[in-house]
């Protein structure tokens, strides 16, 4: 058996079929070229060619391996008409977020800056105190009064929207 044939046999054990076949199927179902698939898997284009051409057996990075599993599932779901290509691509991108081997920071949902600011305010005094303080200074410093109320006493989504507006986002 040639070296490439040996590699492909080992790929079949690991992935159910040689990776050239697996990825060919995904590429056809999702309408992606090799470079786009490499990007989606998060590996370099030369690494993907090595795998497809039977020069390397394994997708070494566990995150990329998880995305490959998701890619195959998504391609199958597209082929059977369950989801659209766009949904499939999104699903592959989210694959590593559900796996435990990525950094914890990567899987934590993004927290709005305003939430952190509100935490500081609430650790300092009760909402009523901020409203009282705001009332006391409003006549002279209306903008500062608003800030105290927004971070000290408003709902999180209101504070987030107000912050975005202030920062021009």
């Amino acid at each position: 058996m040639s070296e490439v044939a040996q590699v492909r046999a080992k790929q079949s054990e690991l992935y159910g079929a040689p990776l050239n076949e697996v990825l060919q199927r995904c590429s056809a179902a999702l309408g992606l070229n090799q470079a786009q698939m490499a990007k989606l898997l998060g590996i370099s284009a030369p690494m993907l060619s090595q795998l497809i051409n039977g020069h390397r057996i394994k997708v070494a990075n566990p995150t990329a391996a998880a995305r490959l599993v998701a890619l195959v599932q998504a391609a199958d779901a597209v082929s059977s008409g369950e989801i659209t290509v766009a949904q499939a691509v999104a699903a592959v991108g989210e694959a590593d977020a559900t796996e435990s081997f990525t950094a914890t920071t990567a899987i934590r949902p993004k927290r709005h800056l305003a939430a952190d600011i509100q935490d500081v305010f609430r650790a300092t005094a009760a909402a009523g105190d901020f409203i009282g303080a705001a009332n006391a200074i409003r006549a002279e410093y209306p903008d500062v009064a608003e800030l105290l109320v927004v971070y000290g006493a408003e709902r999180a989504d209101t504070a987030a929207a107000w912050t975005d507006q202030k920062l021009g986002r």
């Binding site: 590996i43 370099s44 070494a60 990075n61 566990p62 995150t63 990329a64």
Partner: peptide
């Protein structure tokens, strides 16, 4: 970065 993406 490329190397870490390829190999973990």
């Amino acid at each position: 970065t490329t190397l870490l993406n390829d190999y973990g």
